[in-house]
């Protein structure tokens, strides 16, 4: 038995939902970032899997999108973590439920 496209999709769906679980159920800002990164990685896995199982030959579009998405995810992580640090300086906490004031 070789893995079919379906198995890869199941794996990536599971990863996505684990990321969603982290985003929706955790209170710590860094966990939320980890969850977002997991969801993006699941999307990347989908892109690569669809490229691999698509009719050949074809241009490596899926691979390109995955590369760009990794770059964008890295930028997102940098800004997100910088925001966590900035917010922590202000509120002395990283619990997202306590960032409930609009006026800083």
């Amino acid at each position: 038995m070789t893995p079919t496209l379906q198995l890869f999709l199941v794996i990536s769906a599971t990863l996505f939902c684990i990321g969603l679980l982290a985003v929706l159920s955790r209170r710590h800002a860094i966990f939320i970032l980890i969850g977002i990164e997991l969801m993006l990685a699941a999307a990347n896995l989908n892109f690569i899997a669809f490229w691999r199982f698509g009719p050949q030959p074809q241009p490596p579009t899926g691979v390109m999108i995955a590369i760009f998405s990794i770059a964008i995810a890295a930028a997102e992580a940098v800004v997100g973590l910088a925001m966590v640090i900035a917010v922590y300086r202000h509120y002395r906490t990283t619990n997202v439920d306590q960032f409930d004031q609009l006026k800083g």
Binding site: C17, I18, L20, L21, V23, L24, S25, R26, R27, H28, F31, N95, D97
Partner: peptide, 14 residues
């Protein structure tokens, strides 16, 4: 992480 997990979020994820 000391905050209580949000079980509603877990249900949505599932």
């Amino acid at each position: 992480d000391t905050g209580k997990p949000n079980w509603g979020g877990a249900i949505i994820a599932i």
